[in-house]
Simulated scan of single mutants.
Amino acid sequence: MRLASYRHGQREAWGIITEDEKVLDCSAVAPTLKAAIEQNQLSNLTPSSTELALSEVTLLPPILHPEKIICIGVNYANRNAEYRDNSNEAAYPSVFMRTPDSLTGHNNPLIRPPESQQLDYEGEIVLVIGQGGRRIRQADAYQHIAGLTIMNEGTLRDWVRHAKFNVTQGKNFVHSGSLGPWMVTADQFNPQVYENMTVTTRVNGEVRQHDTTANIIFPFAYIIHYLSTFYLLKPGDIIATGTPNGAGARFDPPRYLIPGDIVEVEVAGVGTLRNGIADESI
Rank of each mutant, 00 (worst) to 15 (best):
R2S: 03
L3D: 10
A4K: 09
R7T: 12
G9P: 05
R11D: 14
E12W: 02
G15C: 06
I16D: 09
T18M: 10
T18L: 03
E19Q: 14
L24G: 04
A30L: 02
Q41N: 00
L42E: 03
L42Q: 00
N44K: 12
S49L: 01
V57R: 12
L59Y: 11
K68D: 14
K68S: 11
I69K: 12
I70L: 15
V74Q: 10
V74K: 10
N75Q: 08
N75P: 05
Y76F: 15
Y83I: 13
D85V: 14
P93D: 13
S94Y: 13
P100I: 00
L103N: 13
N108M: 14
L119C: 10
V126P: 02
L127W: 04
G132I: 05
G132D: 06
I136Y: 01
I136W: 01
R137E: 15
Y142N: 12
A146H: 08
T149Y: 04
T149N: 02
M151G: 00
G154M: 04
D158G: 00
W159T: 02
V160S: 02
H162A: 06
G170H: 07
N172Y: 06
V184D: 06
V184G: 01
A186F: 01
A186W: 00
D187M: 05
Q188F: 01
Y194G: 12
N204K: 10
G205S: 05
E206S: 11
R208D: 05
Q209A: 12
T212D: 15
T213F: 11
N215Y: 11
Y222K: 13
Y222P: 05
L233G: 08
D237W: 10
T241H: 07
A249M: 15
D252G: 01
D252T: 15
